[in-house]
């Protein structure tokens, strides 16, 4: 464990807590893409299949349980909570996210570390996580305005993967046989997807203006 990875995991946890706070406090999920949340739930379930077979550390197991439980809770809220589901931007959240699931799985069948069920689902979860934010970014482009909590949610989500890139550089420099191309390349692609959002977020923060995304 290194400081970059810990910072990454903490900002990832923070992004989920910000989202839970927004949904719980405002009883609204306007501006949040349910499709992105569903993709994240698939990512965590597919990636943590080893939850009961490989014990790495209490921290590792605890965080896996938190990520799976929180992502499923968010999807459940957005689908079944009477107050929250009413505020879902159904007509804006129209990204065909099943294509992302199919493409990621197809890629995982081709590119993986080992041809085992667990490794293929792990690679699938890595690829899917890289593109899972797309429905959310498309929804924000359509809705134009971004409320503070949603903006912070996406900012922390992008920062988490950026910290992981620093973690991979650090591990590459300090651990002799550390090679993790699938996660590295996919993580760089994922962070790049946030680049334009980060740009507009920084501009709005600098001008102290409301975050507006160009339509």
């Amino acid at each position: 464990m290194n400081i970059f990875r810990l910072a990454g995991d903490m900002t990832h946890l923070l992004s989920i807590l910000v989202l839970l706070l927004k949904i719980y406090a405002t009883k609204s999920c306007s501006g949040i893409s349910r499709k992105t949340q569903e993709l994240y739930a698939i990512v965590f379930v597919a990636r943590y299949l080893d939850l009961f077979t490989d014990f790495i550390s209490v921290y590792n197991t605890f965080m896996k349980v938190v990520f799976i439980a929180s992502s499923l809770a968010i999807v459940w809220c957005m689908r079944f909570h009477p107050m929250v589901r009413r505020s879902y931007d159904r007509e804006l959240d129209t990204f065909r996210h099943y294509f992302l699931v199919g493409a990621s799985f197809a890629l995982a069948l081709i590119l993986h570390e080992k041809f085992t069920v667990q490794e293929i689902f792990w690679a699938f979860s890595i690829y899917l996580e890289a593109v899972a934010i797309l429905p959310q970014l498309v929804l924000l482009q359509r809705s134009g305005n971004v409320d503070n909590l949603t903006g912070q949610y996406i900012f922390f989500l992008g920062a988490y993967r950026a910290f992981y890139i620093l973690n991979w550089i650090y591990r590459y420099l300090t651990e002799p046989h550390f090679t993790r191309w699938i996660a590295c390349v996919s993580g760089v692609v994922q962070t790049a997807l946030y680049a334009d959002f980060f740009y507009y977020y920084f501009i709005s923060w600098k001008n102290n203006s409301k975050l507006k995304l160009p339509a």
């Binding site: 990875r5 990832h12 080893d50 490989d54 790495i56 965080m63 896996k64 990520f67 570390e113 973690n167």
Partner: peptide
């Protein structure tokens, strides 16, 4: 050991 350490990241 290599196998288990492999997915030590979240």
């Amino acid at each position: 050991l290599e196998e288990i350490l492999y997915h030590d990241e979240l």
